[in-house]
Structures are given as structure tokens and as C-alpha cells.
């Protein structure tokens, strides 16, 4: 929120869809709910094209979101938009409540989940995993080596699961896997910070830079997914091997 531009309301002054009261001219002015709800007649406003999962929860496009703040805003907005509040209203008002509440629910569900949030940002910024793979090549050699190591280890486990040597090797492998995952998580976190910090620096046009940051992040996410698939495979295997 720090560097969020606050000029929007001056340029664009939306009026209530029905009663035509200026939406930004009331006590809710500057509140994230101001454009979403007419506090004069109580009508939930139709979703505008420029609205997104961030804006409906009073956020800008970023990663470092505070779950408690989000929850508070989600509850506040729910109190205003929920269909339960429009049980006695006409069908048009009910339909508006239904569509905005659905959107709000999806927005909250997405912003609360770090993985869903990253997917959403990638999609918004036009970053697609497939084209990324073409552009930057595949999974790094070292991760492929981890996978290969795992396949070899599997053979050994099948041959002599009880041998101390194999058990030790397995423990070491699991440690490496954890350690690699933690490193990737750390990397993703630092990229998220980087993205959040640079996004609204208006002095320099850094849209190209932030796109590069996102692309790097998407690659790390890809690597993380790759390791996760090994992990899933391991979970299945370790169920078969006793005393791990």
C-alpha cells in the first residue's frame, strides 16, 4: 500500500449504478469499498473491467500481503455484499450482490494462498510456464541430477531396504531434498520482496525489470514443482518401506 497512487478518484468519479449518487463523495471516500458499494442506497455496484482480485480487497498487485488485514477487509466487504443482506431486495440488486460476492470469495481465496497468488500474478502479467520453458530452457541440471539420484536410490531400496547403508543414503537424500526446497523457497521469497519494492517506483520505468523478476520467480516455481513431484513420488515409496 505504501506507494499506491491515490489520484484515481479525482480523474474518475463513478456514480451509483442506480441512484446516481457520487460514490467517492461520501464517508467511505478513499476506502477500498467506496466504488464497490453505494452507501446511500445500499446497492452493490456492478464489477468494472478494471477491478481485480487485489483491488476488491483494497490491495495493489504485490506478494507481501498481511493475512490479518486481508481477513478484516474480507469480513467487512462480506457484510455489505453477501446475498443474505439482499433477501428482501429486487432481483437486480440480488444479482449484483451474487456476482460481487462470488468475485470477492475468489479474490480472497486466491490472495490467501501463496501459490494461487503467484499463479494469478503470472497470468495477469502474461507469464506462461510453457512459453517460459521454451525461452529459458528446461529444468537445471542439478535438479535433474537429484531426480536421477532418487531413481538410483529406489533401485537400491528395492534390493536391500534394510541395509544400514541404504537407510543412511536415504536419509541424506531426504535432507538434500529438503535443503534444496528451502533454498528455492528463500529465493522465491526474496524475488517477491524485490517485485513488491520496485513495482511502484514511479521515477524509473521499471516495468521491464519487474517482468524479469517475475520470470525468474516463475522459473523457481517450476523448479519447486519439480522437486515436489520427486517428493510425492518419495511419499508413495516410503509408504512401502518400513522403518524410515
Amino acid at each position: 500500500m505504501r506507494n499506491e497512487p491515490v489520484v484515481v478518484a479525482v480523474v474518475f468519479q463513478p456514480k451509483c449504478f442506480r441512484c446516481q449518487v457520487l460514490l467517492s463523495g461520501d464517508s467511505l471516500a478513499r476506502d477500498f469499498l467506496a466504488h464497490q458499494f453505494c452507501s446511500s442506497c445500499g446497492l452493490v455496484q456492478p464489477l468494472a473491467a478494471e477491478e481485480n482480485y487485489f483491488s476488491v480487497l483494497g490491495e495493489t498487485c504485490r506478494f507481501g500481503l498481511d493475512p490479518e488485514v486481508l481477513e478484516k477487509r474480507f469480513y467487512r466487504a462480506s457484510r455489505l455484499f453477501h446475498p443474505d443482506r439482499f433477501s428482501n431486495s429486487d432481483s437486480a440488486a440480488q444479482a449484483l450482490s451474487l456476482s460481487r460476492m462470488s468475485f470477492l470469495n475468489q479474490a480472497y481465496q486466491t490472495l490467501k494462498n501463496p501459490e494461487a497468488l503467484r499463479e494469478y500474478v503470472f497470468k495477469r502479467e502474461g507469464i506462461f510456464q510453457e512459453s517460459l520453458a521454451q525461452k529459458t530452457g528446461q529444468i537445471p541440471i542439478e535438479l535433474i541430477e537429484i531426480a536421477e539420484g532418487w531413481f538410483e536410490l529406489q533401485d537400491e531400496i528395492l534390493e536391500e531396504a534394510d541395509s544400514l547403508k541404504v537407510q543412511k543414503k536415504l536419509r541424506e537424500f531426504l535432507e538434500t531434498l529438503q535443503e534444496r526446497k528451502a533454498r528455492i523457497d528463500e529465493k522465491i521469497l526474496s524475488l517477491e520482496k524485490k517485485y513488491d519494492e520496485r513495482k511502484y517506483d514511479e521515477k524509473n520505468d521499471d516495468s521491464k525489470f519487474s517482468l524479469l523478476v517475475l520470470e525468474e520467480m516463475a522459473r523457481e516455481v517450476q523448479n519447486k514443482n519439480y522437486l515436489s513431484s520427486i517428493e510425492k513420488n518419495r511419499d508413495r515409496m516410503t509408504q512401502n518401506v518400513t522403518s524410515i
Binding site: R18, C19, S39, C41, G42, L43, L80, R85, F86, N88, S89, D90, S91, A93
Partner: peptide, 14 residues
């Protein structure tokens, strides 16, 4: 804040 707006009442509740 009252949210019962007469404006949109379908019918009087029966």
C-alpha cells in the same frame, strides 16, 4: 449503518 433500503424492496415481507 442500516442496510434495509426501501429503494429495493421487492414487496413488503409477508
Amino acid at each position: 449503518m442500516s442496510l434495509q433500503y426501501k429503494f429495493f424492496k421487492k414487496t413488503e415481507t409477508t
